[in-house]
Every structure is written in structure tokens, then in C-alpha cells.
């Protein structure tokens, strides 16, 4: 420290006790409110943290082990990961999972948007009934909703027997069930109700006077939609996309029921590792890889759309 600084320094030191005394009171006030909040939140937070973080940590640890019969060899190894990255089967299943899930997400958002738009802007009475009607199926048995498509698309299913009964075809159509398209269709049906809510909320939030302002400044309905409604509802669209893409990548019930051999997804393989293949460490490594890739894709997507939206203006 040089001499000239000391004057300023000492003046700082003089004022310091006062300011820190004040800030401490302020900090205490804030922290006491925060403290109350944390106290109230702690049971929920602890249960959730414990039952998510601990299992995930264990899964990560296990992915570096290896399976020996029904026991685990706890020596550290990267073998599970190198196997995953080398195996063409894994890559193929991963790409198919991402592809099916992306197609389903895209279809879901596209078909849900107009529905959400309709309820947000054109339903004026009994909105609540419409919202409940739209979202009701989502809450009911996932398994049964998937199973119903097996009934519809099956070899002796509703469509085939219906078409034969009408005399339109002689032989049952075989391309309906047990392929990736059936998986996409089933997943789209299962998740459509879920996509509506975030989109609806973002549309409902748009101040109607903004739409009137766009009209007033010369935009017809289409231009108004493209320039105001769509950009302002993008947060909802992005949320819906992520809310559907992430869970559907990991779905294994749908491919197992309606996918057939060509419609199997990565999650089926993960499930098999904990079942008939009986290689938990291998399955853990697969699960972690899947999570990481999906997470990266979701984050990249969010960043990209944000970037794109900013640049449009």
C-alpha cells in the first residue's frame, strides 16, 4: 500500500462499521423471511432431494461397476461406457428413439396449437369445461391408452375388421401395427393433452390490446398471428416441446406394446438390462448416456430458439 491511499482507506474503514451494521440488520430481516420459507419447504425439499439425488448418485457409481452373475464387481471400470459408444446397436436405437420422439413432439405441438388457440381466443363461456375436456385423458391410465391403439391397429383390430366388414379390403392390413409409425401415433395421442396446457397458458396471457394494436397498425389476421401472437406464445411452445420430448425419449411401454421389433427404442434395451439381460451396471451406463444426450439436446434447443427469437426482431 502506498501512502496516498491511506486517507481514503481510513475513511472507508470509518464508514464501514455503520454500513455493515445496517446491512447486517437488513440481511437478518431477509434471511429470517428466507429462513421461515426454508423451514416450511424443508420436508418437501428433503424428501425430493433424497429420493432423486441419492438414487442418481448410486446409478452413476454403479455405471462404473460390472456385473458378475447376481453380484457386482465394484472395481472402477469404463467398460460399460466404451461398450455403449462402440456398439452399433446402441447408436441405432438411440437415433431411432430420438427420431421417434422428435416426430411425436412435432406432431403433438402442431395439432395442439390450434386447439389451445381456439380455447384461448374463441371460447368465451365455459372455458373451464373445455380445458378439463382437453386435459382429462392425460390423467387416465397410460397403459390403457396405449393398449387401446393395439386394439385399434391390430391384425384383427378395429380398423382392419371394420374395413373388411365394409368390403373395402380382403386381407387385414399389416402395416398398421408393430412399426415406428404406430409408436409415433400412439405417443402423439398419449401426450397431446399435455402439450395443450403450456401453449394455452402462454396464449391466454397475451394482452388482447396487443392484438388490437397490431390490427390497428395495419396487420390482417395472418400477419398479426405471425408478428405478434406466435412470437408471444413461443415460451409455451418451447415448454411444451421439452415437456414432451424428454419423457417420450425414455418411453418403453409404447414401443413394447405397439412398436414391434422395428419400433423398439433405447429405453426397451435399458429395461432389458435390468431384466432378462441382467446387467445393471450396463443398464445404468445406458440410462446415464440417454439422460445426458437428451439433456444436451433439450438445452441446445432452448438456447437455439431463444437465439432465433431474438434475431428475428
Amino acid at each position: 500500500m502506498n501512502e496516498p491511499v491511506t486517507a481514503a482507506q481510513s475513511s472507508i474503514e470509518k464508514t464501514r462499521p455503520v454500513s455493515s451494521w445496517r446491512s447486517r440488520i437488513r440481511a437478518f430481516y431477509h434471511s429470517s423471511e428466507a429462513f421461515k420459507g426454508y423451514t416450511l419447504l424443508s420436508p418437501t425439499m428433503l424428501v425430493m432431494l433424497f429420493s432423486m439425488c441419492v438414487p442418481f448418485a448410486m446409478m452413476v457409481v454403479m455405471s462404473f461397476w460390472s456385473q458378475v452373475g447376481y453380484e457386482f464387481d465394484t472395481d472402477f471400470t469404463l467398460a460399460n461406457y466404451s461398450k455403449v459408444t462402440e456398439g452399433a446397436v446402441y447408436t441405432q436405437l438411440l437415433i431411432r428413439s430420438l427420431w421417434i420422439s422428435a416426430a411425436c413432439t412435432f406432431a403433438t405441438v402442431i395439432i395442439s396449437y390450434p386447439m389451445a388457440y381456439y380455447v384461448a381466443f374463441h371460447v368465451h363461456r365455459r372455458k373451464m369445461i373445455w380445458i378439463i375436456l382437453m386435459t382429462l385423458p392425460f390423467w387416465t391410465s397410460y397403459l390403457l391408452r396405449i393398449f387401446t391403439w393395439k386394439v385399434i391397429l391390430g391384425f384383427n383390430g378395429v380398423i382392419n375388421s371394420g374395413l373388411i366388414g365394409l368390403g373395402l379390403i380382403d386381407e387385414p392390413l399389416e402395416f398398421l401395427l408393430y412399426n415406428p409409425n404406430a409408436v409415433v401415433l400412439t405417443l402423439t395421442h398419449a401426450w397431446a393433452a399435455f402439450a395443450i396446457l403450456p401453449i394455452y397458458v402462454s396464449l391466454e396471457k397475451i394482452d388482447r390490446s396487443l392484438l388490437e394494436a397490431a390490427t390497428d397498425l395495419g396487420d390482417g389476421p395472418v400477419a398479426r398471428f405471425m408478428r405478434v401472437t406466435l412470437p408471444l406464445s413461443l415460451p409455451g411452445v418451447i415448454a411444451a416441446t421439452v415437456l414432451i420430448f424428454v419423457p417420450t425419449v425414455g418411453d418403453y411401454v409404447t414401443p413394447a406394446l405397439v412398436g414391434g421389433p422395428d419400433g423398439l427404442m433405447l429405453a426397451n434395451l435399458i429395461q432389458a438390462h435390468f431384466g432378462i439381460i441382467n446387467n445393471w451396471p450396463g443398464g445404468s451406463a445406458l440410462a446415464i448416456m440417454m439422460m445426458a444426450i437428451v439433456g444436451i439436446i433439450a438445452m441446445a434447443y432452448i438456447a437455439l430458439t431463444r437465439f432465433a427469437v431474438r434475431n428475428i426482431e
Binding site: P55, L243, P247, G250, D251, A267, S284, A287
Partner: peptide
Amino acid sequence: APLVIPGIILGVALLIL
């Protein structure tokens, strides 16, 4: 988070636990 985490991941992780 459990809203978006695929069911299989949660299931497997809890099974390991």
C-alpha cells in the same frame, strides 16, 4: 423435475437405491 424425467430413469435409479 419428476415431471420431465423419463419414468424409466426414475424407476431404474430407485430400483438401484
